[in-house]
Design a protein around this nucleic acid. Sequence first.
DNA 1: TGTTTTTGTTAGCCTTCGCTAACATTTTAA
DNA 2: TTAAAATGTTAGCGAAGGCTAACAAAAACA
Lengths: 161, 161
Amino acid sequence: MKLTSSQEEYLKTIYLLEKNKQKVRVTDIAQKMNITKPSVNKALRILKDLKLINYEVYGNIELTKEGRQNAKEIIKKQDTLEIFLIGILEIEKKQAEEEAKAIKHAMSKESIEKLDNYITKILDLGDLKCGYDKNNEKCRSCIKITARERLKKAKDSEIKI
Amino acid sequence: MKLTSSQEEYLKTIYLLEKNKQKVRVTDIAQKMNITKPSVNKALRILKDLKLINYEVYGNIELTKEGRQNAKEIIKKQDTLEIFLIGILEIEKKQAEEEAKAIKHAMSKESIEKLDNYITKILDLGDLKCGYDKNNEKCRSCIKITARERLKKAKDSEIKI
DNA sequence: TGTTTTTGTTAGCCTTCGCTAACATTTTAA
DNA sequence: TTAAAATGTTAGCGAAGGCTAACAAAAACA
């Protein structure tokens, strides 16, 4: 069953909130996604119908097994894209996150898998010790090092929820 | 002025049709985009209001200077993404085209520029003659060669409009 | 425990962008 | 030159996914 881009965002948000809180609230979701509570309410009913969350009026909100499965996949997509955009393409963090968020819905699981493998390959190339100067921008070792540094830098500046 | 994903598709389609025909018709656009004529009609009115096309009832359809500018940028985005997906990630052509089409709206001009530069860099790495065997999948020369071959293959199988 | 604040819901509206049905215009060709 | 075919338009519907206004329920607290 194919979810909409919006539905994916809801699942992702609920998953991340579940990790940090006992109970996920409509208000939390609305705040995190920067939309109104009635919009969240409407979306939750649909996600419930799709059996992706458990939810009753004025009751608890929690992902079902299937919902969690979906959420994980969505988050993996976004993470992989962010790593590529920040670490390889050197796009500034905030911009990269925004773009990754918008792109992820358009990419299949298989394509993300390929991107993931590619990133690993590029990051590992340095291990081959090509012998070029570290300052040569085409040197694979240098590519590796700068990519890792960029990722570390981006990760360090993270603000916890 | 930020266009919607759908509007970008219309501009792209009109641009490509203009290159192959004297006159662009509602029917042509509908057929190419696989939607109905009334949908096209509605969209054309909006594009006209946005001054991206010249268009009168029962009259000719043509891109304005600004519309053409936009169309070119959109096509560049899609092309760059396709090259990356097909040539570097080795995603199958049809799938890659579909994904590139959906992704392009989410990426800024600047990010596409970076992706384009990255692709060029990767394709050029082979020129450094790293010395590894051609059959080593981590060899930069090999990466270059296989990527170029994949692109050529994908291009050759193109069906003209 | 009763009142205020916070949280959640309902109803109904708007925009985007598809669609069908019905009709108008233009083009083609007999 | 007029009838048929092709093309284009109008009107109005529907789904998705936002929104506000108004109200209901729950929680906090005095």
